[in-house]
Nucleic acid binder design. Structure first.
Length: 952
RNA sequence: GGGCGAGUGGCGGAACUGGUAUACGCGUAGGUCUCAAAAACCUAUUCUCGCAAGGGAUUGUGGGUUCGAUUCCCACCUCGCCCACCA
């Protein structure tokens, strides 16, 4: 008898189909468990071994929960609208409908060959009119609530797919599907107001049991930002420029304001702009740039000043110039920013290029860690300098090594009245060193606020230091006074040597070094304010609040919140999607111009079926292929009955997957999307498994629709997916993603033919930690295959009772149970292997085999079912109950003996011995006694039932 | 540039909450069986010194906390993923 997996698989699968063990009833008297895979897109290539990893995990959980007594909902369906099927259909000149039907048949066959326990009676398909009728229904509800609107805006357009894209579908400036660079195009689009849900989408993340990185990605994508909106009055005009900023504390440093080229204000101000031609030319140029071009060419910022215009900074009444520049995004905030070049890198670069004023208003603050200010001493303020004198011959820097104190410093001194910083520095250098010939190189950024206690004067000092860099031209110097030379010695050192100088007394050092190495950086951190009138001395956080409050009082600003999230561009100019159920009626438009003649198709006329047409290739001119189907486009207005035209754009691929998980709870309902009872019983999803690539696509869109349906009271829970787990990718043996074009795809058929479905399932789990990527190793599967064969053959040999098996089996029950609960499938498989290694399977009796097979059944269902039935059971193993472990206490345990934390021995200890007895026993061991003399023991660390450590 | 995560044998990886590092599997070597080979089974397998008994080193690198660190803290290096002019 050998392990004939082909026969076993067929028998088990036939048995399950006949006995219908995997069909789920809406039986609300039982505890439910809803475990779901992200349903696949049935492409022409079929499934590869990478897809199966997630499905195997959900199947293990489904089987396990079933045996735990839950009414498990574990369904499967097809997300079949969208580009891949359509493109493939165009290529092979067939209708997408036919192609999809073929692909689904292939996928379904593959899934069934793996013995997955899906309830196929609930199978759904997003391209089925009975399904998309409800997708359209949701759209109409969105429209009725004002959450679906039309607008002509510049959108991302993929020239290869010939359709508009949502923001989420653009990745680093490329189309998510085909990686073509996207273009900007002005198109009249249907847009969904997902931004209305931004705060709820963000806040409700908190309660979800999702992987932190996914939550983090959604948070970043939604991008909540707290700041202030500030109004700059335009001189000699009633108009104002509103800017959004998170750095109201830098308002005094604003030296110009910038509008996005698309900002409407530009048009309104045209009459005042002196260089209108230049401005128009610039606007025209930036219009044609894609977002990618705008950002990629970011190294060189461009802009044009609006000559003749000035804006008034509301905090100090100063007039500043107004610019337009395409580094300002029209769609974020107010489409205008205040430029603070001293404290914003982008503004800084812009100022350098166009020679604009840079005004410093925030400076970093440091406190001397060795001599911090003393609370009861007076504070004396000084403006001061530090001179960094470099010898260009060896790049060493002059430091002062103090005689009476263990200090190394730069040349330091106060600025006297009437002196500027450079003069003060030159004077100090001369006084302290005698060097006469120095070349001033540059100031090292702006000031630094420095706080310390001056021991020799018994006072606290608050100094604003300016660092200045000089080069020594020659060695010529005058003799300095004896008094001066007695204070310190001159020592030349490299930056590295100064950094590692243990006596360095310069809390500003890291700032100087950073500014020396990166001279072209604005100071963007928080700090304390200078040059800001009454706000001088406050810290950034406080200043943000106080400045905004002051503006609010004068009506020039207020606190504001912004989101990065943009509304969802929902139109696609392609054939293979749900038609948007809207009719455009000219007559209705005349009667009610505000409604623009946009009429929703009434519920009883749904679905608006996709017409079957010959030629469905995309046109690329921004219109959908449907617009060519006159017989379909021309219709009667459902409102007034006059001639009208259908909307020809279709919905994006994500529409169907936004609510499919709901339909599984009530898949055949003709009257409603789902019944309230079905939702109440099965929702929310207890475990959802899929790839991390949907973090800001499907998972965000679905949450949005779900919340909308919650508001409509169609669903009862505010979040659809209670617990989410990500499945790590399986890479081909060449460490690349598996894809047909790379020719590295490994198909399940290939593996099943050679090793069987159970081996494939177990290897998928054994390959590594579930959520991490793994590389498919051709030989890896032989280990699990040998294990299953061993199980099969051991069963055939006869049963004798072995007393030790009971304990081990009980341990195995605990291990497997915990590991399924925690998704540690890889070590669950190794636990089975370990068990088979320590226990002679042939010696297990009938009851022990029953238990063992139950544990194995979620992983290797075919073999387990077959042996279960052969072990004199008549019903499916999956209708049996999961085994409970009995606690069998061991008489002895292993104690680790360490000397100074190093393992020296492992002893078997009776559980009844107490600490003293154990110590004596251990020290009685020859080997230990040889190394540990009783009188030399400093300490004994004792960890109950685990370890004893002698410190000698 | 910002955020998140990860570095353990020849390879995939294991190690609970700070307590025997290298489980389990693959591969490799030797052996059993065989006329022979394959398969299967048995033994060995982190590195290093040693004939051996036994010793030493080791979880990316360097430091710290601790009786004891793969695990905690700090700095650095490398790789991966996501976002990227969001004011």
């Amino acid at each position: 008898m050998k392990y004939d997996f082909k026969k076993i698989e067929k028998n088990s699968q036939d048995f399950w189909a006949k006995s219908k063990v995997f069909e789920t009833k809406n039986d609300s008297s039982r505890k439910k468990f809803y475990v779901l895979d992200m349903f696949p897109y049935p492409s022409g290539d079929g499934l590869h071994v990478g897809h199966i990893k997630g499905y195997t995990a959900t199947d293990i959980v489904a089987n396990y929960m079933r045996m735990k007594g839950f009414n498990v909902l574990h369904p499967m369906g097809w997300d079949a609208f969208g580009l891949p099927a359509e493109n493939y259909a165009i290529k092979i000149k067939k209708n997408p409908k036919e192609v999809v039907a073929q692909n689904i048949a292939k996928f379904k066959g593959q899934l069934q060959s793996l013995g997955f326990s899906y309830d196929w009676s609930r199978e759904i398909n997003t391209t089925d009119p009975e399904y998309y009728k409800w997708t359209q229904w949701i759209f109409i509800k969105l429209f009725e609530k004002g959450l679906a609107y039309q607008d002509e805006i510049p959108i991302n357009f993929c020239p290869s797919c010939k359709t508009g894209l949502a923001n989420e579908e653009v990745q680093s400036g490329e189309c998510e599907r085909c990686h073509t660079k996207v273009e900007r195009k002005n198109l009249k689009q249907w847009i969904l107001k997902i931004t209305d849900y931004a705060d709820r989408l963000l806040n409700d993340l908190e309660d979800l049991d999702w992987p932190e990185p996914i939550k983090e990605m959604q948070k970043n994508w939604i991008g909540r930002s707290e700041g202030s909106e500030i109004k700059f009055q335009i001189s000699n005009s009633k108009l104002q420029i509103k800017v959004y900023t998170t750095r109201a504390d830098t308002l005094f440093g604003c030296t110009w304001v910038v509008l996005a080229p698309e900002n409407d204000l530009v048009k309104q101000l045209e009459s005042k702009i002196e260089n209108l031609n230049e401005v128009k030319e610039y606007i025209e140029k930036s219009k044609n740039k894609s977002d990618l071009e705008r950002t990629e060419l970011a190294k060189e910022k461009t802009g044009v000043e609006l000559r003749g215009l000035r804006a008034v900074n509301p905090i100090n009444g100063k007039e500043v110039p107004v610019w337009i520049a395409d580094y300002v995004l029209a769609h974020y905030g107010t489409g205008a920013v205040m430029a603070v070049p001293a404290h914003d890198q982008r503004d800084f670069e812009f100022a350098k290029k166009y020679n604009l004023l840079i005004k410093e208003v925030v400076i970093p603050t440091v406190t001397d860690p060795i001599d911090p200010p003393k609370p009861d001493e007076p504070v004396v303020f000084r403006n001061a300098i530090q001179a960094i004198v470099i010898n260009p011959n060896n790049n060493k820097i002059l430091t002062l090594c103090w005689q009476k104190q263990p200090w190394t410093t730069f040349i330091t001194g106060g600025i006297d009245d009437g002196e500027d910083a450079t003069e003060a520095a030159k004077r100090e250098i001369y006084e302290e060193t005698g060097y006469k010939n120095l070349k001033f190189i540059r100031k090292l950024g702006g000031l630094v606020d420095s706080n310390f206690y001056a021991n020799h004067k018994k006072e606290n000092r608050k100094a604003h230091f300016q660092a200045l860099v000089f080069e020594l031209l020659d060695e010529e110097k005058d003799q300095i006074s004896d008094k001066e030379s007695a204070i310190h010695q001159l020592v030349w050192k490299t930056w590295e040597e100064i950094k590692n100088d243990g006596n360095l007394k310069c809390s500003e050092f890291n700032i100087w070094l950073d500014r020396f190495s990166n001279p072209e950086n604005a100071f963007e951190d928080h700090g304390i304010l200078i040059n800001s009138n009454s706000f001088n001395g406050s810290d950034s956080e406080t200043a943000k609040r106080k400045i905004t409050e002051k503006l609010r009082k004068s009506g020039h600003g207020d606190f504001a919140i912004n989101y990065k999230l943009r509304d969802w561009v929902f139109s696609r100019q392609r054939y293979w999607g749900e038609p948007i159920p809207i009719v455009h009626c000219k007559k209705c438009a005349l009667r009610d111009p505000s409604g623009q003649g946009v009429v929703a198709v009434p519920e009883d006329q749904l679905p608006v079926k996709l017409p079957e047409i010959e030629n469905y290739e995309p046109s690329g001119d921004g219109t959908s292929p449907l617009s060519r189907v006159e017989s379909w486009v021309n219709t009667k207005c459902p409102k007034c009955g006059s001639e009208a035209k259908r909307e020809t754009d279709t919905m994006p691929q994500w529409a169907g997957s936004c609510w499919y998980y709901l339909r599984f709870t009530d898949p055949k309902n003709d009257n409603k999307l789902i019944s309230n009872e079905a939702d109440k019983y099965f929702s929310p999803i207890d475990l959802y498994i899929g790839g991390a690539e949907h973090a800001v696509l499907h998972l965000l869109y679905a949450r949005f629709w779900h919340k909308f349906l919650f508001d409509l009271k169609v669903v009862n829970f505010k979040e659809p997916f209670k617990k989410l787990k990500n499945v790590g990718l399986i890479l081909a043996p060449d460490r690349q993603k598996m894809s047909k074009s790379r020719g590295n795809v490994i198909s399940p058929e290939e593996i099943i033919g050679q090793f069987g479905a159970d081996s494939l399932r177990m290897y998928e789990m054994f390959i590594g930690p579930f959520d991490q990527p793994a590389v498919w190793a051709k030989n890896g599967i032989t280990g699990v295959s040998r294990f299953l064969e061993n199980v099969c053959l051991s069963f055939e040999k006869n049963n004798k009772k072995d007393e030790t098996i009971g304990t081990n089996l009980s341990q195995l029950i605990n291990l497997i149970t915990q590991k399924i609960e925690k998704s540690l499938f890889n070590t669950a498989v190794s636990d089975f292997m370990k068990f088979a290694k320590t226990v002679e399977l042939t010696k297990m009796n009938k009851e022990q085999w029953d238990v063992f097979l139950k544990l194995l059944s979620p992983f290797a269902p075919h073999l387990s079912e077959k042996l279960w039935l052969e072990n004199s059971n008549s019903n499916s193993i999956f209708s049996s109950l999961w085994p409970e472990a009995q606690n069998i206490e061991q008489q002895n345990y292993n104690l680790v003996v360490q000397i100074n934390g190093k393992r020296k021995a492992v002893l078997e200890i009776n559980k009844n011995l107490d600490r003293k007895e154990i110590e004596n026993l251990v020290l009685g061991q020859k080997k230990i006694a040889f190394e540990v003399k009783r009188d030399k023991i400093k300490k004994i660390i004792f960890v109950e039932k685990k370890l004893i450590n002698f410190v000698v």
